[in-house]
């Protein structure tokens, strides 16, 4: 009895966490490389291709470089908060991965079902949203504790930007939740499978509002005002070495998390397009698992590409324009859309 509990509640989740973390770290490391190379291609360059074949060992080299750099703490800084701030912004995205479901449940030979998720909790999306707003703390603390005014300005910019875009983001996610009738991510995907259409069709407006506000939430170009790598002095100006790497990885982990969340919400997640998954699942469960995972990965890759594409194309917003778009365009649109989706749900989706 005791050993059963040990296996089910401690050993199994730990193995799952280890696998997930390893996968996420690899993906986060390589999305940086992919982004740099793709940006190069977009600008008629080749990008980093020297370290290893096709530059595949570049992330290791970058990591080593950052690791070996001196870790400076400014004299004016508050050392304790300065040290703890990167962790605040580092851990939320990684926790967010825990609630993602990657495929239909695995049926063991003994007849037991295993979810392809570390914790498929029933408030999954809410957890991710609240964690993403927790990430602001890391940024504000980093800016404040640096003991220098420009990081402070950067962090304040970031805070008001995130506040402005979190509301349309949440409202557009709520329209999805209304259509699915559940906060659980696997339920949302199953709802799309049973309705036999993806939520992007009734929620096309919500999808675009979500796309825009998510770019702003992750502080990426058109909206990278908190920290413009090229020009703007941002919240992690005073950071160097490993602590800077934490912020850097947090940013990209956020991107990966969003890239994996978007298909689950709007494009049917691990649903295989043009196939009746739930029927096929009864006869060939393993095949559906593998194919579903692959289709999920493909959809996520599409979004990752889209992010990089946007970054290569658009110039940065001005700050007042940014807030104007957030508050006076996206917010009313998402509210109206919420109303519309409610009507659709009431009359068309039985």
């Amino acid at each position: 009895m005791n050993s059963q509990i040990l296996i089910n509640y401690i050993a199994f989740p730990l193995i799952k966490i280890a696998i997930l973390l390893a996968a996420v770290f690899t993906v986060v490391a390589y999305i940086v490389l992919v982004e740099r190379r793709l940006l190069g291609f977009f600008q008629s360059r080749l990008g980093p291709n020297r370290v290893g074949p096709l530059g595949l060992i570049q992330p290791v080299a970058d990591g080593l470089k950052l690791f070996l750099k001196e870790d400076l703490i400014p004299t004016n800084a508050n050392p304790f908060i300065f040290k703890i701030a990167p962790i605040f912004s580092f851990f939320p995205p990684f926790v967010g991965f825990a609630v993602l479901t990657f495929a239909l449940p695995l049926i063991m030979p003994s007849g037991k079902m295993h979810q392809f998720a570390v914790a498929d909790v029933d408030l999954g999306i809410l957890l991710i949203l609240s964690l993403s707003s927790l990430g602001i703390f890391g940024i504000i603390l980093a800016g404040w504790s640096s003991g220098s005014k420009y990081p402070l300005f950067g962090s304040l910019r970031s805070a008001s930007q995130m506040l402005a875009y979190e509301i349309p983001l949440t409202l557009s996610v709520i329209s999805v939740i209304m259509m699915a009738g559940s906060f659980r991510l696997s339920d949302i995907v199953t709802a799309q499978q049973t309705y036999k259409f993806y939520f992007i069709i009734p929620g096309i407006v919500a999808f675009f509002v979500y796309l825009i506000s998510v770019v702003a939430e992750t502080n990426r170009t058109p909206f990278d005002l908190p920290e413009g790598e090229s020009e703007i002095i941002g919240f992690h100006t005073e950071y160097s070495g490993m602590r800077f790497a934490f912020f850097f990885m947090a940013e990209y982990a956020n991107v990966v998390l969003i890239c994996m969340l978007t298909p689950a919400l709007f494009l049917g997640g691990y649903d295989i397009p043009f196939l009746n998954d739930l029927e096929l699942y009864k006869t060939h469960p393993y095949l559906v698992n593998v194919l579903g995972f692959l289709s999920y990965a493909a959809k996520s890759t599409l979004f990752a590409y889209f992010y990089i594409w946007i970054r290569a194309t658009f110039p940065r917003y001005r700050y007042d324009q940014l807030l104007k778009v957030g508050w006076s365009v996206l917010f009313p649109i998402s509210l109206l859309n919420l109303f519309l989706v409610a009507l659709i749900k009431l009359f068309l989706m039985k």
Partner: peptide, 21 residues
Amino acid sequence: ELIKGLSVTTKYLFKKKVTEE
């Protein structure tokens, strides 16, 4: 305008690269 911009960058994605290795 946005679609135009995106198509321009896509064109450059497949263009010959100018980097001399």
